[in-house]
């Protein structure tokens, strides 16, 4: 579904990604972890072309992201993305947030879009909040709305960029629960996260990045059982022992 081949990216002369290659098959859940500044957020933003890259190739459902001839808005509409800081549109109500792209990008009718939005809002447990503005919701609620907003587009895959990092501890689980449910339903997911509990429960594979490179790309059991690289061992010992 997502094929990443030898991706390299520079900011000026500073190399942020070095020859990263991996793939996410249909229905697979891949967790990307690593210390901050390791390039994991940058890599996931390359997948839907939010960040340009200078070398290599990324294909999503067979379509090349870096090809100038690719209709990027059309491709992006098929890939859901959830951000660290939610990024709901503050001037719109929750239901307007859910329907905007359905109507403007997919050309659905307002009624169809609203029905779809309300169904997904119900699924993340927030049907009662439909007419509120994002500023009146808690962080956890905002992130659940953001997940529902992405799902409204019937995505073929979902990208999560540290979806729980900006949340208070007591709100992390309400978001993770939604993500676990999504994974169990067979959604193709690529998640940048430090939530190793989530990785243990639903990930098929874990990718460990450091200094812009993919250091480890292993099945979940191999990764948690015996990571091959010393760097990954250190990282795991630091984030698991507290």
């Amino acid at each position: 579904m997502i094929e990443i081949k030898d991706i390299s990216k520079w900011y000026g002369t500073f190399q942020v990604l070095t020859q990263c290659s991996t793939r996410v098959s249909k229905g697979e859940v891949v967790v990307v972890c690593g210390p901050s500044g390791s390039g994991k957020s940058t890599l996931i933003k390359c997948v839907n072309g939010l960040e340009p890259f200078q070398k290599g190739e990324i294909r999503v459902d067979g379509i090349s992201v870096g090809d100038p001839k690719t209709n990027l808005p059309k491709l992006r509409a098929r890939i859901g993305m959830v951000f660290q800081n939610f990024e709901l549109f503050p001037h719109m109500t929750v239901s307007q947030n859910l329907t905007l792209a359905q109507v403007k990008v997919l050309g659905r009718s307002q009624e169809a879009a609203l029905a779809k939005g309300m169904a997904l809002l119900d699924r993340v447990g927030l049907k009662a909040q439909a007419d509120k503005h994002p500023g009146n919701l808690s962080g956890g609620q905002q992130q659940r709305v953001a997940i529902a907003r992405a799902l409204c587009m019937d995505p073929i895959a979902m990208l999560f960029d540290e979806p729980t990092s900006a949340l208070d501890p007591e709100m992390i689980n309400e978001v993770l629960d939604v993500m676990v449910q999504l994974a169990q339903e067979g959604m193709t997911m690529m998640c940048v996260t430090h939530e190793m509990g989530f990785a243990r429960r639903v990930a098929h594979r874990v990718i460990f990045m450091d200094h812009g490179s993919i250091v480890e790309d292993a099945t979940k059991d191999d990764f948690f059982g015996k990571p091959r690289s010393e760097r990954a061992q250190q990282f795991l010992s630091k984030i698991l022992h507290h």
Binding site: N48, L50, P73, F83, E87, L100, A101
Partner: peptide
Amino acid sequence: LSRGQGMAGTALGLT
């Protein structure tokens, strides 16, 4: 505005 706002719109497929 935060850079993520524009990204969120773009990621949804808006031109």
